[in-house]
Write a protein that binds this DNA or RNA. Sequence first.
DNA 1: TGAATGATTAGAAACTTATCAAATCAATAT
DNA 2: ATATTGATTTGATAAGTTTCTAATCATTCA
Lengths: 192, 192
Amino acid sequence: MARSALPKRGKREVYEQVEEKLKLLKLLADETRIEILNILMREDSYVEKLACDLSLTPATICYHLKKMEAAGVVRSARSQFYIIYSLNKEIFDKTLSEIIKKDDTADTEEKYKKEVLAHFFKYGKLTQIPSQRKKREIVLAEIAKSFEKGKDYGEKEVNEIIHLFHEDHCTIRREMIACGIMERERETYRLI
Amino acid sequence: MARSALPKRGKREVYEQVEEKLKLLKLLADETRIEILNILMREDSYVEKLACDLSLTPATICYHLKKMEAAGVVRSARSQFYIIYSLNKEIFDKTLSEIIKKDDTADTEEKYKKEVLAHFFKYGKLTQIPSQRKKREIVLAEIAKSFEKGKDYGEKEVNEIIHLFHEDHCTIRREMIACGIMERERETYRLI
DNA sequence: TGAATGATTAGAAACTTATCAAATCAATAT
DNA sequence: ATATTGATTTGATAAGTTTCTAATCATTCA
């Protein structure tokens, strides 16, 4: 039985979305920080005290607190001699799926684009050229991402790149110029 | 001004409680695993396909899936050629505090103490001396933690330490003796 | 002002982890 | 059976993190 070749999808376009959430998770995935948070859940505290409680050096505690403060998990305020650290409780009510799931709530425009792309691309290939103008533009813009800004391409190069997505590179090349994504000057093509 | 010496509390007695939860958090604190989970939220998948989607080798994907399977986050089942991996959705409804918090289901006495302390201390300061005897004892016991067992203190020292928590060190010093937390012998004070 | 002390930073060492290539295992179709 | 192909394991490497010591900074009190 022949099995499909699974072309690569082109490494994760959605880094940024995951990034912040990942930051929070990484932060919480440390034994010492969890211990600190558990103590702060009970009472505010300060560097030296936490160091004693956990049998670690103040430098280490400071390292963790600063890290958590930068992420908005804890807050600090000087009080006399000490800098009192306290919990930012709001953060802790999120569920795991809320944290892990990519924001599909972006704006509706983005969402619509994603749906269109999901519909017309399968495994990185364009299954069909959309007949609706708006959908066609979205699809063409996606293909255009494979061209570098400001770079000149010969017709053969253009065809080869487009061919990665769909057999009919002629139609697509023409459409890209028609809808103003690319321009042609004599023999060379480039993004607008 | 002399500041209290902060006797060590003896390193974390509660490792085990944190351990499992830590395992889950560590698991989720990885970009690749989050990507995998996001894909599995949409549809079940298999090693090779995920490898293509994420531009990683099957070996790497397998490494992550096995890890997550061991923790009960995903499940696997063979289907023809492929081993289909799917999400164990129940896990994702927990909130962060549920994951992080140590089991406070301890005894109610402990819980009550915590509530009282949380109410009367803000940023490490005693906001008000409780009038109810029981609550006052809890608060005084908390302050007493800043004194070392068996050590003798002069009245000035005692006042200084208490002053870290509240202006009225005289009242508190008197109360600590009245309720049997401290004893006074001539000029020296010590914990009982 | 200067002495005391808590907080922070810098740099180094130890540890953990993700990733890949190559070898092996497991199931299926011919 | 055996060739095929997806899944897994192993061993090596590279990258990232935690922790410490030592030095420095910042604040308060005398």
